[in-house]
Simulated assay, not measured.
Amino acid sequence: MHLRKGSLHDAARIAALVNSAYRGDSSRHGWTTEADFIDGQRTDTSEIEEILSADNQCILLAERNEEIIGCVHLEKRDANVCYFGMFVVKPELQAQGLGKRLIMEAERFASHRLACTIMQMHVISIRNELIAWYERRGYRRTDERRPFPYGNERFGIPLRDDLEFIVFVKELKVN
Rank of each mutant, 00 (worst) to 15 (best):
M1S: 13
H2Q: 12
L3F: 06
R4V: 01
R4K: 15
R4T: 10
K5L: 10
K5H: 09
S7R: 04
S7T: 15
L8K: 13
L8Q: 15
H9M: 14
A12I: 09
R13W: 00
R13D: 12
R13M: 09
R13E: 15
I14P: 11
A15H: 06
A16V: 04
A16W: 01
N19V: 06
N19I: 03
A21Q: 01
R23A: 01
G24T: 13
D25T: 13
D25Q: 15
G30Y: 02
T32K: 09
A35W: 04
D36T: 14
F37V: 11
G40F: 00
Q41I: 01
R42D: 07
R42L: 08
D44A: 10
T45Y: 00
S46K: 12
E50L: 15
L52H: 04
L52F: 11
L52Y: 04
A54L: 11
D55R: 14
N56L: 06
C58E: 03
I59S: 06
L61A: 06
N65W: 00
E66W: 06
E67Q: 11
G70A: 04
V72M: 02
K76F: 00
K76T: 00
R77C: 02
N80I: 09
V81P: 10
Y83C: 01
Y83A: 10
G85V: 10
M86L: 15
F87C: 12
F87I: 13
V88Y: 03
V88N: 13
V88A: 14
V89G: 12
K90S: 08
P91E: 05
P91Q: 04
E92Q: 09
L93F: 06
Q96K: 11
Q96I: 01
G99M: 01
G99Q: 05
K100N: 15
L102D: 06
L102C: 08
M104N: 15
A106T: 08
E107C: 07
R113E: 12
A115M: 07
C116G: 03
T117D: 13
T117Y: 06
I118F: 03
I118R: 09
M119G: 05
M119L: 14
M121A: 10
H122D: 12
V123P: 05
S125Q: 02
E129V: 03
L130N: 00
Y134R: 10
R137A: 05
D143T: 09
E144H: 07
R145F: 00
R145C: 07
F148S: 06
N152L: 05
R154V: 07
G156N: 04
L159S: 08
L159T: 10
L159V: 14
D162N: 13
E164Y: 05
F165W: 14
K170F: 03
E171G: 13
L172P: 06
